[in-house]
Structures are given as structure tokens and as C-alpha cells.
Amino acid sequence: MIRLVDVSKEFKTKDTKIKAADRIDLEIKDGEIFGIIGFSGAGKSTLVRCINLLERPTEGKVYLDNLELTSASKKELLKARRNIGMIFQQFNLLEQKSVIENICYPLLISGVRKKEALTRARQMLELVELTEKENSYPSQLSGGQKQRVAIARALATNPKYLLCDEATSALDPLTTRNILELLETINKKLGVTIVVITHELKVVEQICDRVAVMSNGKIEEEGKVEEIFLSPKSETGRKLVLPDSNTGAAPTRDYLRIVFDGQSSFEPVFANLISELGIKLNILGANTEDIGGKAYGQLLIERPDESNVKKVRDYLDKTKVSFEEVFVSKEVISA
């Protein structure tokens, strides 16, 4: 279990202070895949680095199982870090060392003998399916392969936890999917608890059990991935679930967000809506997502005038399709 209690991190620069993490309380349970999502600058990296104390919080406590890391001795901290693997957006492999030497590194520094380290490293290579690259150097690998090596290295010492800071952000969609699948396997097979930092909802949807939405150093909301997707409660959450969240472009007019939760299928509902009510609706955006193996979809339509809104509302209620009304004046009525 990873537990953050009232954790804050303040950066002082010459003339300003930035609270990159602001009174964060968080509990990550053993065995889960926990996501932390937010836009750039939200403080996600800072928060995850507070877990292994790469960044020392200015306030608050960090617990790993029952050890309070923030007051642990240097030796205890180093030992605890060997129980928390970490992977990065830029892979951060040792460029002058071969793949196998990279994976051996964490073993050798923790006192494992060379021969055993090699055996263990080869097992890890097998796990990430890169056996044939044993003697290659990082510069000879693709991004996805580098991340696989980084994963093998992070898991070599058999840690209970794995922190992933934007681990797939430098990779193309297909490679991203493969890496996420690998992380899922690691979670299921080895029981490693995984913390995933990302700015992409897709990543969270594909593998996370629970997610925290972060903005301005604060956690705005936290819950099961489906819950957040179906009815985001925070401003940031709402922006992140929009079809074009990457561009950050939110509709400028009031809109209705109709969400299909895998029960009802997408097209018939909308087709029936139009044909039954006989009103014209303006589509602002739509997409489908795969969450935990179920197809989810959402449809944004421009808010029609009052009388028609009522008709739409009644119809959707009747067909048990969830939706929310979003006013660009930022108030939401969920249904």
C-alpha cells in the first residue's frame, strides 16, 4: 500500500513559489493499477516522484506499507526504493551499457552476485520478449523496445510497486497498446501494484482500476475509471473525457453529453432520438472507447432550445441512457 498524507511540494524559484503538489491525500491499494491523469503542468510527475522521494515533499507524510518514508533513514530509503520500480517517458537507459547490463544494474548494486544477476536478467528479458536483443545497446533499439528494457530493469529486483511516469507518451498508438498490455500482464501475473501517470484518457481507460484527476497540484476527483468517464464531476475531468481532449478544445456553447455505457448501442439510440422526436440536433463530437473490454461511447450535441431539451431529456430518461447537461458557464446537471 502506498499512502500519501497531506503531501505538499513547493518549488521556490528566484521570485516565485509554485505549489506543484498541494495537500494531497491518496491511498493506492496493493494489486491495483492506479492512474493519475491531468494536463501538462498539473503536478503529476511531482506527485509520483514524491512517492519514492526523488522529490522530497515540503510537507506531509509518505508511507510505503507501514514504513514512513519521509522520516526513514537513508539506508531504509534506499532499501525501500529497491521495492519501487520506476519507468520514464524518456526511458533513461544507461547508453553505454548493453541491454543485459542495464537489467543487471539494479541487481548488482543491491549485492546480487554477477552470475545470479545474469540469470535473473535473462528471465526478465524473456518476460518482456526481447531475448534476442540481449547484447544490443540502447541506441540500436526502437522506442518500444527501450521501454521494454526499462520495464525489465525496473522489475529485476522483484519490486512490489511500479511507477510509470508518462511511460507511453513517446510511443505511437500501437506500441502504446503493446506496452500497456505488458503492464497489465505484469500486474496480473506478478501482482505488481502499478501507478500510471498520463495525460491521455485512453491509457487510463485501457488499464487502470481507479484514477485520480489532477490539476494545479490538487486532486480534483478520484474514483473508478467508469465512474469518471460516465460522469466526471470536476472541471478537469470533464475536459479530459471530451472526444478532443488532446487538443484541449472544449465546446464553446452549452451542450449535452450523452454517454453509452456499453449496454445500449450507439447508433440506434441517436437515430431513434431524431426520428422519434423529429427535431434537428447539431453534433459537436463523438467517439467510442474501450473500457475494461466494454465499448463505451459518447456523443456531444449542441443544446437545443428549452422545449426541445425537455423532449430529449425525457426520451433519454425513458431509454435509460445516461447524459449530462454541460453549460459553458460551467454548471452541470447530471442525470
Binding site: N52, L54, L78, K79, A80, R81, R82, I84, G85, M86, F88, Q90, N92, L93, L94, E95, Y105, P106, I109, S110, A150, R153, A154, T157, L163
Partner: peptide
């Protein structure tokens, strides 16, 4: 980043 990765590994 490489130094940081090494620190993270203890």
C-alpha cells in the same frame, strides 16, 4: 534522467 533512474533504483 539517467542519474534519476539510478537514484530511483536505490
Amino acid at each position: 534522467g539517467v542519474v534519476e533512474a539510478a537514484q530511483a533504483m536505490g
